[in-house]
């Protein structure tokens, strides 16, 4: 019975899983880019830029992700910005998570030893080049564990975009469950599919950390 139902539901759920992976990947990239910009603002020598960075991060972090998603999907059209549910989901999740990414990167950047910056200065490097060639490569390695953790959290939190009708895995499950009442089968499958995505991801990240970890420090 369970198996028969499972085989019936699986194709739809797998389609949803593909959307889940897409939403996660795209919003992860978006959150990394915005987060890096915020992090660079926060470590800026200019007090004004740094304060602006911290303020933006605090505002984003202070809002529930669902509220941000609703705002982008339901309110922005009033300002003439019409987005598909998928686009709104990716952008909303990307912005919401950029605050956490910013914190990851900022902590990584600030953990790079001052001596590294001085060594770079002593061979005549300037600010932007020091950041690019000396600080960021080391900061990324330091930030890798929390960065990977964020990716796993985003995979799970991508289910939140179901609230704005994106047909990802959780929403696919909801739709099947509400029409078949096979709650147990459906949600067990959904849970297993999330684990099938997140466990290998965690394992892969652990391996990557171990490989890069040896050259973390000066």
């Amino acid at each position: 019975m369970f198996l028969q139902n499972a085989l019936d539901f699986l194709p739809v759920l797998l389609e949803g899983a593909v959307v889940t992976v897409k939403v996660t990947a795209l919003s992860f990239i978006l959150s990394s880019v915005i987060g890096l910009v915020f992090a660079l603002m926060m470590v800026s020598n200019s007090k004004l830029i740094a304060r602006t960075g911290y303020t933006l991060v605090n505002i984003i972090r202070g809002l529930p992700i669902i509220v941000q998603l609703f705002y982008i999907y339901f309110v922005l059209p009033d300002f003439g910005i019409q987005l598909s549910a998928f686009q709104a989901g990716v952008i909303g999740l990307g912005i919401a998570y950029s605050a956490y990414q910013a914190e990851n990167f900022r902590a990584g950047i600030q953990a790079v030893q001052q001596g590294q910056i001085e060594a770079a200065e002593s061979i005549g490097m300037r600010g932007a080049m020091i950041m690019r060639r000396v600080v960021l490569p080391q900061a990324f390695k330091i930030a890798l564990p929390p960065y990977g953790n964020t990716l796993v959290m985003m995979l799970k939190d991508s289910s939140l975009v179901s609230t704005i009708t994106v047909a990802e895995m959780t929403r696919a499950g909801q739709l099947i469950a509400s029409s078949t009442f096979e709650n147990m089968t459906v949600y067990t499958l959904v849970a297993l599919l999330y684990l099938a995505l997140s466990l290998p991801l965690s394992y892969g990240l652990r391996r990557l950390e171990a490989r890069l970890g040896t050259r973390n420090t000066a």
Partner: peptide, 11 residues
């Protein structure tokens, strides 16, 4: 400049 703690780029 040569530093007490070398400060080579570890990466």
């Amino acid at each position: 400049m040569v530093f007490q703690r070398f400060n080579l780029f570890p990466h």
